[in-house]
Design a protein around this nucleic acid. Sequence first.
DNA 1: TCTTCACACAAGTAATACTTAATTGAAGGC
DNA 2: GCCTTCAATTAAGTATTACTTGTGTGAAGA
Lengths: 312, 312
Amino acid sequence: MSERLPPLTALRAFDAAARHMSFAKAAEELNVTPAALSFQIKSLEEHLGAPLFRRLNRAVELTEAGMALAPGAKDGFRALSAAWQQTRRVLDTTSLTVTAGPALTAKWLAPRLYDFARSHPEIDLRFSATLRNVDLQRDGVDVAIRFGYGSDEGLVSLPARAEWLTPVMTPDLCAQFPTPESLRAAPLIYDDSISFLSPPCDWPAWFKAMGLEFTPGSGTHFSNADHAIDAACAGLGVALGRRPMIIKDVQEGRLVAPFKTAIETEARFRFLCLPASAERPQIKAFREWFFAEIEKTAHMWDDFDIIPVQTL
Amino acid sequence: MSERLPPLTALRAFDAAARHMSFAKAAEELNVTPAALSFQIKSLEEHLGAPLFRRLNRAVELTEAGMALAPGAKDGFRALSAAWQQTRRVLDTTSLTVTAGPALTAKWLAPRLYDFARSHPEIDLRFSATLRNVDLQRDGVDVAIRFGYGSDEGLVSLPARAEWLTPVMTPDLCAQFPTPESLRAAPLIYDDSISFLSPPCDWPAWFKAMGLEFTPGSGTHFSNADHAIDAACAGLGVALGRRPMIIKDVQEGRLVAPFKTAIETEARFRFLCLPASAERPQIKAFREWFFAEIEKTAHMWDDFDIIPVQTL
DNA sequence: TCTTCACACAAGTAATACTTAATTGAAGGC
DNA sequence: GCCTTCAATTAAGTATTACTTGTGTGAAGA
C-alpha cells in the first residue's frame, strides 16, 4: 500500500461522480467544468493504477474498483461534511431550532414558548412541528422533543417526568357521568396516536386499573392527541388524556379530571440534542427552561393515584 | 451554512494536528514543514471564522469549535483511508492473507495448505495464526476463519458444517477403556478453549448424552484445543475432540474415536471476508477449496449419532 | 540568563486545479 | 442515412493553492 490517501480533491470528484453516476452532474455539484472533473477522475485513476469508471456511449458505470471505493468515499465525505456543519453550528449562539410533535406543540409548548422567547430575547427561535423523526445532524435541528420508549443512539437523551393518563371531560359532561362506573355509558374518545404503547394505555387499561369490568364499545377515534383533547373540550365525550396534553385545559377550567386515578406508561417525552451541542448556551437555556416548566405544574397532580400500566 | 465543505487539505491538516495535539508532529505525518501546516490551520480558521486551536506557550489545545470538529474529521478521514486501502486491495489478485486460531491452523489448515498452494501457484499466500479477533479492514487481512456463534456485522459470513465432539484416545488406551461406562474411570483431558460454549460441550454433557451418570473428578486442562489433542496422542488420557481437530490423527491411526456418539454445538467455524472482497479471484478460490476440503472427509462420520447439546 | 522548543509570519516558488475551446463517438429524431 | 444532441475527453493556457526557506516571538526549563 503506497500511501494512506490519494489527492483529496480528486477523491471528492470521484465521490460526486459516483453518487450521480454522471460526470456532468458531478461537475455541476462541485461548481467546476466537466473538463476539470474528467481530469480529476483521470488523475485519481492514474494514482490507483486502474480505471474506476467504464466509459460507455453516453453514460458511465463503475468498475470493480470503483464499486469498492464508492461507498467508503460517500461515508467519509458525509462524515466530514457533518462534522463541518456541526462546527459551524457550535459557533452560532443565537439561533435555536426545536422540533416536536404537533400534539405537544399545540397543547403544551406553544402556550409556553412566548415566555421563553421573552426571557431570552437574544435567541432566534425557530420551531418545527412534525411527526417525522428528524435527523438532528442532517436537518439542522438543535433540539427534538419526542415521545416513546427512547432508543436515542448517539444523542444526549434526557427523559421528562413519568407520563400517565386520566379521563378528562367538560364540567357539564362530568355532571352526567360523575363516577367511574357511570363512565362506561359515556361517549368515549380514543387517542390512536398512543396505540403503539406496550402494554397499551387505553380505556380498557384504565377501567382495569379501577377494578371495573369494561367491554369496549364504539367511540370516536383521533389520530392526534391534541385533536382528541380538543374534541373533549367541545363536549364530544370523555378522553383519556396525557399529562402535558390536558394541563392547560384543566387549569383554565375547560376540562376537569374528576377521577383521581391515572395509569402510567414507561414511555416518556425525552429532550434530545447532539452531544456536541449539549452545552451551547441557547440549548442549555432551553433545556433548563423546559424542565423547570414541567416542575412548575407537578404539584397539580399530587392527589392522584398513579398505577403503572405494566402491573395491571 | 455557507458551504458544504472547507478546503480538504486544510481539513486534513487539522485532523492530523488534532490527533497529535501538535502542529510539528502533524507536519511530520503529512511530510510538510511546520510552517505549511500552521498556514493550513490558519486558513481553515479563517474559513470558519473562529479559531480551532488555542495557542499556548509550547502546546496547543482545542477550542470549543475544534472539539466539535475533531472527532468527525477523524472518522471521515479514517473512512476515506479505509475505502482507498480496500480499493487497492481489490486490484491485487495475487496475494491472500488468511487468519485462523492456532488450533485449527495446527490440526486442520496447516496439513492441507500445501495442497492449496500447489494448485494455485499464482497466489501469494500469507498466513497468520492468532486467537485475537483481527479487524479485516484495519489489519489488511482478507479472510478469517473463526469459531463461535458468530455475530459478524458487516462481513460476509459463511458457516461451515455443524460442529460436534466425540471422545478420542490412543488405540492402547482404548483397549483399557473399551466402553463408555468404563470411560468414567479413565484419565480425562479437558479443552478449556471451548468453555465459552453455552450450553456447555464438555465431558458432563457427553456422558449425559450417553445416558450415564458422571461426577466430574480431576483431569488435565489445556487452554488450546490442539494441545489437548496432542496430549491425547501422547497417551495422556481421553480427550473430547472437535471434528476438524481430530480428523488428521484419526485418519493416520494415532487416535481412535470408538464411541459412535457425538454431541453437537450450535457454534461453528465461519469463513469471513469483507463484502467488497467476496468475489476477488484468490478469495473465491480459497473459499471453494476450504468448503470442498471439508466435504471430502464428511463421509468419515456417517455412522455417528449426533446429539444436539441443547436438547440434553 | 541562556537555550530550546513550538508555533507564526513573509516572500518566493512549485505544484495543482481550473477554464476555455475544440474533439470524439454514439444515440435518437426526422 | 444524415444531422443534432449529449456526455465525456483532450490540449493549452491561466489562476489558485500549497509548500519551502528563512526569520521571528514568547515562554519553559536547565
